[in-house]
Design a protein around this nucleic acid. Structure first.
Lengths: 179, 179
DNA sequence: ACCGTAGCGGAGTCCCCACTTCGGTTAAAG
DNA sequence: CTTTAACCGAAGTGGGGACTCCGCTACGGT
């Protein structure tokens, strides 16, 4: 694979994340190509279909978040680690969930694998915070995921002031904390 | 206006809410017409454009919720009223927010008016619960709205088990409650 | 029961977007 | 420097969906 081709591939993925993350399904491949500074054909040469492009951007995102989740699962202060992980997942994952919803019913194996791995790491981080006694034990990773997804999706759809978002995250953390 | 025309208009609105609420922007007017049991032309006679149809369904939804919010704003137990209001807004408003996101940047006056009125009523309900001392005073209606929107939007996009959703709502309520 | 007309449905039209084709361009090996 | 093959961009192509036209239906007042 040639040098410029690899650079283009990366630029296309970044552009796809931005376009589809904000515009949703309305975004067109032409818009992605323009933002990436390449022609439409180049996009389709790297990714045979629009769905494949979204899928690749999605996997890239999951892998990026996985590092953070692993770090949170091995931190010395489980509660603080969980708090920062939630923050990061909401901020960085805003556009990701829009992408995921675009894939709809069919779930490509690569995406499922990356998603499962990430969820497992988040689950570990949550359990460690619960074992430390700082998070109430009657909630699971499903509730946490639901709330994270909700905030991420909403902030992706419409811009939200940072202060309000932070405050909302703080409310969620207060809801998870032991009394 | 003739009787059958009015019935058709109502059926079309209900169908639009279902189709666009679940499928999102992917839903087509043809699908709405089929579900409503009418022809495509009938849909466009009642609502000159797809956007107008979404707008009408949206206003209908806001007005329906407004009643509930007003009830919550005058209840004797402000905290319990707020809790049920949150539940109702999430359950009933799931598809509504999908519709709202479809309108995008431009905000038709009728929708803005209905939305503002609803938000004001929710704000009143929140303030009453804060005045009663059952909700912490350092959060506003913006945070509440953000969390409600998040959960509603997520449950609209992908089906969520009722138990998980209830538990997540309970976490939010715990986050809002005074310690 | 009759008739005028509002209302209806299906067959088009137009446009947008995912995807393809082909001639020019450039990175890298000899 | 030359060659060559991988890569690129612009101009198509096909399908789907928003929206319109016109002959027909049936509601409802008399």
């Amino acid at each position: 694979m040639r040098q410029d081709a690899r650079e283009n591939r990366e630029r296309i993925l970044a552009a796809a994340e931005q376009v589809f993350g904000t515009r949703g399904e309305t975004g067109s491949t032409e818009e992605v190509a323009r933002l990436a500074g390449v022609g439409i054909a180049t996009v389709f040469r790297h990714f045979p279909t629009k769905e494949a492009l979204i899928e690749a951007a999605l996997v890239r995102h999951f892998v990026g978040l996985l590092d953070r989740a692993r770090a949170a699962a091995t931190a010395t202060d489980p509660y603080a680690a969980l708090a920062t992980l939630i923050h990061e997942m909401i901020e960085r994952g805003a556009s990701k969930l829009t992408l995921a919803s675009m894939l709809g019913d069919d779930a490509p194996p690569a995406v499922v694998a990356a998603s499962t791995e990430l969820k497992s790491a988040v689950n570990t981080a949550l359990h460690r915070a619960q074992a430390a006694g700082s998070v109430r034990p009657d909630v699971g990773v499903e509730e946490l995921y639901l709330l994270i997804r909700g905030l991420a999706q909403t902030t992706a759809a419409t811009p939200v002031p940072a202060a309000v978002l932070d405050s909302a995250v703080e409310v969620i953390l207060a809801g998870f904390a032991t009394r």
